[in-house]
Write a protein that binds this DNA or RNA. Sequence first.
DNA 1: CAAACCAATTTGGTAAACCAGTTTTAGAAA
DNA 2: TTTCTAAAACTGGTTTACCAAATTGGTTTG
Lengths: 235, 235
Amino acid sequence: MTTEILPKNENDSIQKEIISKIRDYINFKNLEPGDKLPSERKLSEKFEVSRGNVREAIQTLESYGLLYSKPQSGTFIADIGPVAMNGMINDILRLEEPDFKTLVETRILLELKTVRLAALRRTEEDLKEIEEALEAYAEKVMKGEDAVQEDLLFHLAIAKAAGNSTINTFMLTITPEIITNFAKYHVCDKNVAFTGIQEHRDVYEAIKKKDPQLAKEKMKIHFKLLYQYCYNIND
Amino acid sequence: MTTEILPKNENDSIQKEIISKIRDYINFKNLEPGDKLPSERKLSEKFEVSRGNVREAIQTLESYGLLYSKPQSGTFIADIGPVAMNGMINDILRLEEPDFKTLVETRILLELKTVRLAALRRTEEDLKEIEEALEAYAEKVMKGEDAVQEDLLFHLAIAKAAGNSTINTFMLTITPEIITNFAKYHVCDKNVAFTGIQEHRDVYEAIKKKDPQLAKEKMKIHFKLLYQYCYNIND
DNA sequence: CAAACCAATTTGGTAAACCAGTTTTAGAAA
DNA sequence: TTTCTAAAACTGGTTTACCAAATTGGTTTG
């Protein structure tokens, strides 16, 4: 068992090990789309791991669309040729844990998009929900209380109004990590919050006016502080 | 049991049911960060579902950073206040299955970003891998064979060179869905591939020259066909 | 009276057993 | 030899039983 890079936990490590062994097996046997993989039981004894571990690895590859399982039948190679199969598995194996800088970089990218789309596509109901989130945020700040949660919900409301379920999913994925790191690095100080109210209002007004360009500009201003953490953003 | 929107499968449905019940429980008991949730066994009998289903729901909420489990101890509320907890769970529950249009819209957004970052940050090794992917693609096309896989790997190589692990993860997430839908809607015809070679070369040259603006322009041209599926892209 | 210790219970995690379809196979009939 | 059928073996999915760590409450001890 090769221990190349120390992973965050043991479980993640052995799953990657299994995935790479599955890749090797697919290559060795020249499995093509539609071909059947050995049963979970056989793989587990061949790799000398528990069946649960094998199932976990298969489900991961299934989530990337590389395999598919038919109940009471078997696990099969998806409709992806060997070249792409190898390339994608290798990419999956070398995926790094997202760090704070790339999280922020990605969040800014996504939000500058969602705010434009929200300005273009928002319904009256969307607008109302954004306004409610804005007021809840402002109220909290005026009381001098911490308003990180309300801040977050304002941005999520905009993402929802953008009407892009894929981006929405991504926003939800990175949000908790962002919060954790914000707290760790003390990005959001109390004094920032007051200026934040007006910035939020500006964004809201631009969405209300259905002006995508203005909305994007105002969001950029709102993200000015974050830019410090994130070089090479000048779109 | 309320059946609001028909889900894609039964399993997904009951998991959402359980998640909403967990949300209700957290609200009813006013659980705050650090508070302990009842054990999986108690929740399973309270909700009248199997313990496996409860575990699945908890793991989903764990993946969004809303709960965390300590072995042989219990499951706890993460460091997120009740307002954000409710907002995020509600967002999670109403997440729609990504459709083709939002997938393409998101892919274009991500790739226009990665190609810029790749032009700025690429190492010599990155460049070499991109070139290899390009040549493999061109070779396949010249032989008149299907080159969807090689096309995909070229784009993934660029994403890798962008050096943003978060975006990279997202690219890997949507790629299989894109492929599936491409095949379904016959987006990539054979005749497109020949013009694709030069377009790929242009993108590659721009990355080689470390010209982010040019790289983005060339990628835009390459995505011209995709634009048809995706209105409101004019960034 | 407080602190330290110990056993019993509770916990999330995991491996084993079980289930309901599917696939293969062996055998009998034509 | 071929074809059809029934049963046995196999499969992924699910439930159940078990495990070891950690918490808890009571007891003992300094």
